[in-house]
Design a protein around this nucleic acid. Structure first.
Lengths: 147, 147
DNA sequence: TCAAGCTTGATGCAATTGCATCTATCGCCT
DNA sequence: AGGCGATAGATGCAATTGCATCAAGCTTGA
């Protein structure tokens, strides 16, 4: 049913993304570091600053499932990388804040992860081509990027 | 360390691919069909024809881990979608061949999967743009596509 | 005010994944 | 022929994921 062009693009997207994720995960593992998912969360929390984020905000930003975030945060807390604070005006909720150790971990992970990105993507395409990829993929996103 | 362009392209690739996979998986689930991984294997086996494929060939083609293929094939066999045949000249190995039921399942899955591809990708970009995506992503693949 | 329904986050249980290792067979080299 | 490393595939066990559901607190509307 889909056009041949759509099928090829889809297939390539599936294959390349799997391959890139795997390479990046391997690099982290080789460095004795936690998986990518941890980076995603630590990154969002680092951007959020001292105010921290509510778990449901992390879900929106990272696309992880609710139960996934719930348990990932439990592991991060057990490792002292984040802390859970009660929320004043909502007794159900909590605010997640990155700790100093969490920032340090993120820094270490970025050293490896950033290198992977450079090797796997930055070194393969020119800046113009990278922008083209971003623009085209942006239109596949939901909601589409308008830039 | 990576350029801003590389980071954006990487981030978008990660996000979009996760989103697309999730959408396609949801569509299959909603249709009471097995997950995408099953399709990938059935697709390769259908292409391979009566000769079938060895498990290690499936690993090369699909990028799944060895233990993953091993167990996925066990499930597919349990469902009668593939059959395992001994190999004449290699006592360790087996040949996997898709059954009639397997072909039928693949057909059903494609009805749903193909529609997802059309909606998620085919309807969002022109044929030229799709070809551009394929070409750019092809250069990120390992080994790179030369087309 | 308070019941009904919604939102937030956690969790029991089953299925899947990942890791390490195992068995069996093969191919090669002496 | 016999031994030895390499290859093919399976599997025990721990960790993670997915699904369904739960408990607690919030919000709204009569």
């Amino acid at each position: 049913m889909p056009s041949p062009e759509a099928i090829t693009a889809w297939a390539r997207l599936m294959r390349v993304s799997r391959q890139l994720v795997e390479s990046a995960e391997d690099a982290l593992k080789a460095g004795g570091l936690p998986p990518l998912a941890w980076y995603d969360v630590l990154h969002e929390l680092a951007e959020a600053g001292e105010g921290g984020l509510r778990p449901f905000q992390l879900i929106e930003r990272t696309l992880f499932a609710q139960y996934n975030i719930s348990r990932l945060l439990a592991r991060l807390e057990a490792d002292g990388l984040v802390e859970k604070l009660p929320v004043a005006d909502d007794g159900r909720g909590q605010t997640i804040r990155i700790t100093a150790r969490g920032r340090e971990m993120r820094r270490q992970m970025w050293a490896v992860y950033g290198r992977s990105i450079t090797e796997l993507v930055g070194a393969k395409l020119s800046a113009d081509e990278l922008n083209m990829v971003s623009a085209l993929l942006g239109r596949l996103r939901h909601p589409p990027v308008v830039d």
